[in-house]
Simulated scan of single mutants.
Amino acid sequence: MDLWIPITLAAAFLQNLRSAGQKHLKGTIGTTGATFVRFAFGLPFAVVFLLILHEGLGYPFPDLNRTFVLWSVLAGLSQILAQFLLIHLFSFRNFAVGTAYSRTEPAQAALFALLVLQETLSLGVVVAITISVVGVMLISVAHTPVNPRSLLTSIIRPTALIGIASGTAFGISAVGYRAASLSLGGPNFLMQAAVTLAFTLTMQTLIMFAWMIFGDRTEFGRMRRAWRPGLFVGATGATASLGWFAAMTLQQAAVVKALAQVEMLFTFAAAVFYFREKINRLEVAGCLLIVAGIVVLVLLG
């Protein structure tokens, strides 16, 4: 089995835990604060990962370059926007369906990679992404009358537009992180991923901190009272991101994100067993299509 596959599966599971933690935080702090926690509380863990690789395993620091900085900034800003939109989406729909709209990310990442990095995908990967996206669309209309018109009109609903915008931003950030990590040129994929993570989390934390200083200082008090779940979000988020960056250093971002659709299975499990939300047949059918897409990806991609 290619190494990027188990890394991606682990990252997807951890990201689901982080998303669940953020939804819990959303009931205590605002959207901006919940977004800030994702970065600020994750930064110490990213630094620890970097020190373990450098001091513990003896991997040298790669030289930063202009290309790395430019891609990291683009990816980091896109991720802030994507995260903000995704958390805001939780206010409109339940936990399982709320994340579904952003699941067009692999297709959008593939398009962005083609336009900017000239990366192409095999037919098997394109089929896998298509199957998964169809599954996501079924989930997105699971609580509305299902007919051809509803499938079309669902795209222009505010929740769908927010989710699609989130998926676009996530797709851009994924390709940007891959380009940034690859631009370091060594010493290995883990160190490249860790440096990319530490750099971008530092930048994102500073940006979000400045935003909150001038926009909503009251969030700091709420975050201080919610520091325990905040640490959980930071730890799971940073570890998941390290996994994403490592996998995307080894494999194309769109391919990694296509396999990452497995997170929907974890999301459904969290929705049913933790948040006690009801899941209907269309959502189950959409979930099965996502699984089918993943199988096609692994066998033919």
Rank of each mutant, 00 (worst) to 15 (best):
V146M: 15
L114D: 03
V136P: 00
L25M: 14
A142V: 05
W227Y: 15
A107N: 04
G27T: 13
V298T: 06
F36E: 09
A96S: 13
H88I: 04
V146L: 15
V175T: 00
P187F: 05
A109I: 04
T28L: 15
L81G: 03
E219C: 11
L115Q: 12
L117Y: 04
M137Q: 10
N280M: 11
A20K: 02
L53R: 04
V127T: 01
F92W: 14
G286L: 04
G237L: 12
I7F: 12
N280V: 07
Q22A: 09
L289C: 15
G76V: 10
E55W: 10
R157N: 05
V133M: 05
F68P: 06
V69Y: 03
V141I: 10
Q79E: 12
K257F: 06
N94F: 03
V296F: 08
A292I: 06
S72N: 02
A247C: 12
I290L: 06
P148C: 06
I290F: 00
T120N: 10
L123V: 12
G58C: 07
R149I: 09
M264R: 01
S19I: 12
V47Q: 03
F266Y: 05
P158D: 00
A180D: 10
T168F: 14
L297A: 14
F39K: 02
V125M: 09
P229M: 03
T249N: 13
L64N: 03
T249W: 00
F273C: 10
A82W: 13
L184R: 12
T267P: 15
G33P: 00
M191G: 08
E119C: 11
F112Q: 07
L114T: 03
T196C: 01
T35D: 08
A240K: 02
R157L: 11
L288W: 02
T205L: 10
L3M: 01
A107R: 02
I87V: 10
G221W: 01
Y59M: 10
L74Q: 01
G167Q: 13
I129L: 07
F41M: 14
V146I: 15
V136N: 11
C287Q: 12
W4K: 07
A194R: 01
L288P: 07
V272E: 06
T249M: 00
I131Y: 03
T99K: 04
H24T: 12
E219P: 07
L182Q: 15
F39A: 05
A258V: 03
F13Y: 11
G98L: 11
G230E: 07
G30F: 15
P44R: 02
R66V: 08
P60E: 08
F36I: 02
L9Q: 06
T249H: 02
G33A: 14
L57S: 04
T196V: 04
I29K: 12
T67E: 06
A210K: 01
A110G: 05
I156F: 15
S19Y: 00
A258I: 09
Q83C: 01
Y177W: 10
Q204F: 09
F92E: 10
A109Y: 09
L70Y: 11
V296T: 12
A174D: 09
L17F: 09
A82L: 07
I131K: 02
